[in-house]
């Protein structure tokens, strides 16, 4: 056998192996997705949205409490995280630029984005839960805000940098002060990108469970007081899925399905916005 023949055979073997690993990898992932959809759709019903949690065995139990809690915790986190992140990102792109301070903030934010979220939970426990003496919706929101901040900050920074500098110069040439140039010209130019960053940031924190375990904790019933422990879809999912009761497990799958669809929708929306802008 010549060397070239050997090379061709090796090539074919590797190509088969690579295709096989792609099939295995993708197979696993679609298995998870399939399980999620089958169990989720099976568990869906109107009572999921209309009823609160109930002890195992009760027929009329739902996820209303968790859905509302989730919405409030993530909503408040978004309310804080987005403006703070956008402001900080504005500093990096428009004022700090390539300065040492700006580069340091960028690096630290990048690291924060991959840091373990459960540690943020422990931190918030120490600064919010312990002094208050009890778990609360606020504590959960604070934890999610901290996780969201670096994501929004870095995407804003990146998106503002994409705005051509000639646009800024043109506005300055008309005599506009810098804050007006930024808020009226630069933000407008980067609108789609910032929006995508926000969508992805919300999607990311909406799936967080670990930092909520000991901040917002959980509540099996509807509570809209942010000062009190609050249910979230993720923690509810965790509690229900690890319970021995079949009806609770079923609710857990419904929660998993609703949450995944929400997160996937945000991700797809974000992609579409970016794609539409590129298409222009």
């Amino acid at each position: 056998m010549t060397h070239t023949q050997k090379r061709i055979i090796t090539n074919n073997i590797v190509m088969v192996l690579s295709t096989l690993s792609a099939i295995i990898g993708i197979g696993f992932l679609f298995w998870i997705l399939g399980v999620l959809v089958i169990n989720g759709v099976d568990a869906l019903s109107w009572t999921i949205f209309s009823e609160e949690g109930a002890p195992p065995g009760y027929e009329d139990s739902g996820l209303k409490h968790a859905l509302i809690g989730q919405f409030m915790i993530v909503g408040v986190a978004t309310l804080f995280g987005v403006p703070l992140g956008v402001l900080a990102g504005t500093y990096l792109s428009e004022y700090g630029q390539k300065s040492k301070l700006a580069e340091t903030i960028r690096d630290i934010s990048d690291i924060m984005m991959s840091a373990p979220s459960i540690v943020i939970g422990a931190f918030v426990y120490a600064i919010v839960v312990a002094p208050m003496g009890h778990f609360s919706g606020w504590a959960g929101s604070v934890a999610l805000t901290i996780i969201m901040l670096p994501i929004i900050l870095r995407t804003t920074d990146d998106m503002l940098q994409l705005v051509p500098s000639t646009l800024r110069e043109a506005a300055f040439a008309l005599g506009a002060p810098k804050y007006k140039v930024i808020t009226q010209v630069v933000y407008r130019g980067a609108k789609a990108g910032i929006l995508t960053g926000i969508l992805l940031g919300v999607a990311r924190v909406a799936g967080e469970t670990a930092p909520l375990l000991f901040t917002s904790f959980n509540d099996n019933f509807l509570n809209t007081d942010m000062m009190e422990p609050m249910a979230s879809l993720t923690v509810t999912m965790y509690n229900y899925a690890t319970s021995p009761y079949e009806d609770w497990q079923k609710l857990g799958w419904a929660a998993a399905f609703i949450l995944s669809m929400f997160i996937l929708t945000l991700n797809i929306l974000g992609r579409l916005i970016i794609m539409k802008r590129k298409g222009k």
Partner: peptide, 8 residues
């Protein structure tokens, strides 16, 4: 799939 929460 990378965006699916780890709890799932």
């Amino acid at each position: 799939l990378a965006a699916i929460p780890s709890v799932i």
